[in-house]
C-alpha cells in the first residue's frame, strides 16, 4: 500500500509528510515529525497523554488518523507558550508543583489550555470533569487542579 501525502499545519508551520493509512496523528507527530512532546500512554483514547488541538478542538492524537490531518491546524504541547515566556498554565504547573514524573504533563497542559480558552473561569468541578480524560498516577490531581485554578486567575489578571 503506497503511503499517502498529507499537508497540514503544526504549531503554525506548514508541514508535509507521507504516512501509512493506519498511522495515527500521534504516530506521525512522534515518529515522522519528531515532535515527541506528545506522549503515548495507551493508544486507545483512555489516558489523554497524546492530547492535541485540531482546529481548536481537544482530541486524542491516537484516535485520529494521520491522513485526516490534511488541511487541519494542529497544536501540540511544543506550540504552547513562546520562547521568551511560558504559557500561564505551564508556569503555574511549575510553581504549584503540579507534576511529578512529568509524563502526563504535556497532555494536561494542552487540555487545560483548551479549557481556559473556552471557559476562563471554571469551577473546581468543571476542571475535574474537563480533565477526567487525562490520567495522572503520581499527583492525585490536587496540585494539577490548583494549578489550573491559578492559571485562570493569572490569565484573568492579564486581561484586566
Amino acid at each position: 500500500m503506497p503511503k499517502i501525502h498529507v499537508s497540514t499545519t503544526v504549531n503554525g508551520d506548514t508541514v508535509e509528510f507521507l504516512c501509512e493509512t493506519q498511522e495515527t496523528v500521534l504516530d506521525v507527530l512522534r515518529n515522522t515529525l519528531g515532535l515527541t512532546g506528545t506522549k503515548e500512554g495507551c493508544g486507545t483514547g483512555d489516558c489523554g497523554a497524546c492530547s492535541v488541538l485540531v482546529d481548536g478542538r481537544l482530541v486524542c492524537g491516537c484516535l485520529m488518523l494521520g491522513v485526516e490531518a490534511e488541511g487541519k491546524e494542529i497544536v501540540t504541547v511544543e506550540g504552547i507558550g513562546s520562547p521568551d515566556r511560558l504559557h500561564p498554565v505551564q508556569q503555574k504547573f511549575l510553581e504549584d508543583a503540579a507534576l511529578q514524573c512529568g509524563f502526563c504533563t504535556p497532555g494536561f497542559i494542552v487540555a487545560a489550555k483548551a479549557l481556559l480558552d473556552s471557559n476562563p473561569e471554571p469551577t473546581e468541578t468543571e476542571i475535574r470533569y474537563w480533565l477526567a480524560g487525562n490520567l495522572c498516577r503520581c499527583t492525585g490531581y490536587d496540585k494539577i487542579v490548583r494549578a489550573v485554578q491559578d492559571a485562570a486567575l493569572e490569565m484573568k489578571g492579564q486581561q484586566a
Binding site: T36, Q90, E95
Partner: peptide, 23 residues
C-alpha cells in the same frame, strides 16, 4: 522552601525525553 524544579521547563514544554522518545 518551594523553588521551581530544575527539570520543570523541559517537562511542561514537551522537551524532556522519556523512554520512547529516542531514535
Amino acid at each position: 522552601t518551594r523553588p521551581i524544579r530544575h527539570d520543570g521547563a523541559d517537562k511542561v514544554t514537551g522537551r524532556a525525553n522519556y523512554g520512547a522518545d529516542f531514535k
